[in-house]
């Protein structure tokens, strides 16, 4: 990059997070995984915990997340990240442990693992990326695919009579006593991205304060497998996903509320 002179009265307001490596991601142009990775990295930077954070990557498009986060990382079997995180956290209670999981990973094959990790109140944080489709395998129906949504394995649109209904994980996890903070956010526009970052920060703070399990469901896009342009995909998601997956907190215990207030 050419050196650019920065006028003295300019202050840096956005810089590359230390918690990301410099490696370019393999994600498609416009894929919101990149945004979510960056938000996590910014939060870890702000909390100053990079050197004691251990991440767990899922199976799915973000299987290579460990290349992009500048911290210790493990790659789990499909759906098993919460079990692996449990193992790591139980023997390393001073560390910050998070899983990064997609909808197939968390809401289909790994349903048992996420529910029980949440129910035990494991002191881990889960970032759950819901884009209503299986990205890596090329656009098949996910547990979160919307009714009527066309995918390569629901070519006539998801028929809820045979394929069942999309699963609302944030609401489901919120019913579990071990969950301290559960929320659903979306990265469909700049204000949404800012709210998502705040939520991710609160989720990590919940873990740091030892209050219980925390999860941020992030509504996301997959423009490639939705067969749209990146900008169009954000619009489509706003119009179609939020109706079925309402945004906002589904569980905030009082101690987390106090935490949220206290940080202002």
């Amino acid at each position: 990059m050419a050196t650019v002179e920065i006028p003295e009265d300019m202050e840096l307001v956005y810089k590359y997070p230390e918690s990301l490596t410099e490696r370019h991601t393999h994600y498609c142009p416009g894929c919101t995984h990149g945004i979510i990775h960056r938000l996590i990295a910014e939060v870890i930077d702000e909390l100053g915990v990079r050197e004691r954070t251990i991440g767990i990557a899922p199976v799915g498009c973000s299987v290579l997340a460990y290349y992009y986060f500048n911290m210790d990382f493990a790659e789990a079997a499909h759906g098993r990240a919460p079990a692996m995180a449990t193992g790591i956290k139980r023997v390393s209670p001073g560390k910050v442990v998070f899983t990064y999981q997609g909808d197939g990973d968390l809401a289909a094959i790994g349903t048992a693992e996420i529910i029980h990790a949440a129910n035990r109140g494991e002191l881990i944080t889960t970032i759950f990326v819901n884009n209503a489709i299986y990205g890596m395998t090329g656009g098949q129906m996910a547990p979160t695919t919307l009714p009527g949504q066309v995918t390569t394995s629901s070519p006539m649109g998801r028929d809820v009579e045979t394929a069942g209904w999309p699963i609302r994980m944030a609401e489901l996890i919120a019913t579990l006593p071990g969950a301290a903070y559960v929320t659903r956010q979306a990265v469909f526009d700049v204000p949404g991205i800012r709210r998502t970052k705040k939520a991710i920060k609160l989720a990590f703070q919940t873990q740091l304060a030892g209050l219980g399990f925390s999860m941020v469901e992030v509504l996301s896009t997959c423009n490639t497998n939705w067969h749209m342009g990146p900008v169009e995909a954000l619009e489509w998601a706003k119009q179609h996903m939020v109706d079925y997956y309402p945004l906002g907190d589904t569980k905030v215990i009082d101690e987390v509320k106090a935490l949220a207030k206290g940080r202002k």
Binding site: A76, R80, A83, T86, G87, V91, A112
Partner: peptide, 24 residues
């Protein structure tokens, strides 16, 4: 020390995997 009754053998071995990755 750590004892945990997992939700399944699948979870148990992946907890083992995690703890082993952490060097325990």
């Amino acid at each position: 020390r750590v004892f945990l009754q997992a939700e399944s053998e699948v979870a148990a071995i992946n907890m083992v995997y995690g703890a082993a990755c952490a060097g325990a």
